[in-house]
């Protein structure tokens, strides 16, 4: 009994139930063959790309911030490597460094503006989103005269970042798993994990408690920018080309995954494992529908309903998690920051 109780108290409990629920729905209503679904690469590849972006977005959300500039940073990363290593023919590692540096710089700007001003991070990153969209488009046109740039990568880069395992699973899946494992480890065992939760719970008292909230916030935005450009970079290596558009869909997909995974948008509550499960759930909902008899046209409806149900469930689970052991006075404050 206590085992169940303590499982239900964890942030990822509700999201695990969402995942099971959506699979059950697809099996019972959609007639999915589980063997085929689990053997398929499409949704795993989708999840890996989304997951690498969703983890830092989720950590930022736990810390009380949001980053929507990722929507422009994914094409920015793929365009940076394609221009540097494809158009100018420099070694591939220079392109990689360039792509990641671009993410770091934009993350730095987002972070500094977030800590130095009282402007909400949604608005700051909306501004950098729009600026970067223009920079990528105008920059590509200016430098290469073209809006789509091709890239040929050496074998080692192709194998590490853009290869296929068993001719269907992308190598980015390993990067996703490794990234998840490292962040879970760091958040659970290192003090920085507690700092992030403290910051999202109450910024002022976290700062008073001696946590370097400014440095921490800036680092988290840098991580988020770099993760997004990393995904873009891998995609350029994988598909031998970079295109300027695309990426906007990641904004809402990442937020939905993180929230379905039990993270509180207002900060202070969530878990990496929950985000991981949220990404799996989202990927199965949106990509698994191909394996069902349900018309593909309805997939957005299912995503919307899943999100609302999952959030409602998370809400009641969190109340349960926070109430019985000890009443926390802080719980009432959550709403005010919305």
């Amino acid at each position: 009994m206590s085992v169940i109780g303590s499982f239900l108290r964890r942030p990822e409990a509700a999201s695990a139930i969402s995942l099971v629920g959506i699979i059950a729905f697809y099996v019972l209503i959609g007639g999915v063959n589980l063997g085929t679904l689990f053997g398929a690469a499409s949704w795993v590849n989708f999840a890996a790309n989304l997951g690498i972006v969703a983890i830092p977005v989720g950590i930022l959300m736990i810390g009380g911030y949001i980053d929507i500039s990722i929507g422009a940073m994914i094409p920015a990363g793929s365009m940076a490597i394609a221009i540097i290593s494809g158009y100018y023919g420099l070694p591939i590692w220079v392109g990689m460094v360039g792509a990641l540096a671009m993410g770091a710089v934009v993350g730095l700007v987002n972070g500094i503006l977030s800590v130095r001003t009282t402007v909400p991070s949604l608005i700051i990153t909306l501004a950098t989103l729009v600026v970067m969209q223009g920079v990528v488009l105008a920059g590509a046109k200016l430098l290469t005269g073209n809006a789509s740039v091709s890239l040929t990568s050496p074998v080692w880069a192709k194998t590490m970042f853009g290869g296929l395992i068993g001719s269907s699973h992308q190598t980015i899946i390993f990067w996703w798993l490794a990234f998840t494992a490292i962040t879970v480890f760091v958040i659970q065992t290192k003090p920085v994990g507690n700092w992030i939760f403290a910051m999202g719970g109450d910024m002022v008292s976290a700062r008073n408690a001696g946590i370097a909230t400014n440095k921490l916030t800036i680092s988290l935005f840098v991580l988020s920018g770099m993760s997004a450009t990393f995904v873009g970079m891998c995609s350029a290596i994988q598909f031998n080309s970079a295109q300027v558009s695309g990426g906007m869909g990641y904004i809402f997909n990442a937020i939905v995954s993180v929230v379905v995974g039990g993270t509180l948008l207002t900060g202070g509550y969530g878990s990496i494992l929950g985000i991981f499960i949220g990404v799996l759930t989202f990927s199965i909902v949106s990509q698994g529908i191909y394996f069902t008899q349900i018309d593909r046209n309805w997939s957005n409806l299912i995503i919307g309903v899943t999100l609302l149900l999952a959030v409602a469930m998370n809400e009641s689970f969190r109340k349960f998690a926070l109430s019985p052991p000890k009443k926390r006075p802080g719980a009432q404050r959550e709403r005010q920051k919305a």
Partner: peptide, 21 residues
């Protein structure tokens, strides 16, 4: 595909899916 946002990768996903099936 759902849209044209992530078109190249989405098409490859569909190809691989057809192969998997």
């Amino acid at each position: 595909t759902q849209n044209y946002e992530n078109f190249g990768p989405d098409l490859v996903t569909l190809i691989n899916q057809a192969v998997a099936q």
